[in-house]
């Protein structure tokens, strides 16, 4: 825990945000936070983020890059200066909650995914305030990162992520040069029978595994459905996703009591 205080102080101004999450209750947690002298941000995780990330043992750490992708996971003892500095490139040094005055308009549009509006507001601000130019750079960088990760997703066969991501992103790109590239991703997938078929399998995977199994029997049912779904897709990205899920279910089954 003390290491989080240190990392927070040392790298906050360089782009690092430290956030501790717990699934436990408020009273015990508050008492513990005080006792340990923790000064970093913390919050409660009722939504099951830990479960979604497959966390089985605590403590566990995840490092999330500026583009929202997980760049490292492991035991907190593995988080050191080298790891942090390695990934600081591209991280915003002035967090969104420090954007005030007219910059707030940029922030709102940005968080809404309306990159066109965000950049327009940034240009307006830049006329009187140099921060407008910096905000524009930040928005453009995040946008580039998002487009890049969609292209990367499509290239490695994660069609569903690319398709849904592109559709959502396109909404906020009216009139921007990136609009064409993102629309092209949606079009390409829509016109390709193979890609569409893979996407359907990914959707089926999500449907089959939507509910967390509570009994061994449920695990077996999901595993059977997944093994059937896997047929013909071995060696593909979705095939690997299915196999990983089957392994998870197998391990979960081993931990369930009945």
């Amino acid at each position: 825990m003390p290491h989080l205080n240190e990392l927070d102080e040392k790298y906050r101004d360089k782009g690092l945000t430290v956030l501790a999450l717990t699934s436990e209750g408020v009273d015990r947690t508050e008492a513990w936070i005080k006792a340990k002298g923790a000064e970093f941000a913390y919050a409660y995780d009722p939504g099951g983020l830990a479960r979604q990330l497959g966390v089985r043992g605590i403590p566990a750490s995840f490092l999330v890059g500026p583009d929202g992708k997980i760049v490292w996971q492991g035991h907190p003892s593995g988080v050191n200066d080298a790891l942090v500095t390695q990934h600081l490139e591209g991280a915003i040094t002035k967090p969104l909650y420090e954007w005030d005055g007219d910059a707030k308009k940029i922030k709102k549009a940005f968080l809404d995914g309306d990159f066109g509006k965000a950049l327009a507001e940034a240009a307006k601000l830049a006329a009187d305030d140099p921060f407008g130019e910096e905000a524009a750079k930040i928005v453009r960088r995040v946008l580039e990162g998002r487009v890049g990760s969609l292209t990367a997703a499509l290239e490695k066969g994660d069609v569903l992520t690319a398709y849904e991501g592109a559709k959502a992103l396109a909404k906020g790109l009216k009139g921007l040069p990136e609009e064409e590239a993102v629309d092209a991703i949606v079009t390409r997938i829509s016109k390709d029978k193979d890609l569409k078929a893979q996407m359907k399998v990914q959707e089926k995977l999500l449907k089959i595994t939507a509910e967390e199994p509570r009994r061994k029997k449920d695990c077996d049912e999901q595993m059977d459905d997944l093994k059937r779904l896997l047929k013909g897709h071995e060696g593909t990205f979705v095939g690997a996703q299915i196999e990983a899920k089957v392994l998870e279910l197998f391990q979960l089954k081993g931990r369930l009591q009945y």
Partner: peptide
């Protein structure tokens, strides 16, 4: 979807967008 974000100038997780985020799952 987190609740009760404390000891942070941010009010929502979204406001960390663009940052390098170190998440540590812990318990008392």
């Amino acid at each position: 979807e987190i609740e009760g974000l404390t000891q942070s100038p941010a009010s929502t997780f979204e406001e960390f967008t663009g940052r390098l985020i170190l998440i540590e799952f812990f318990a008392y």
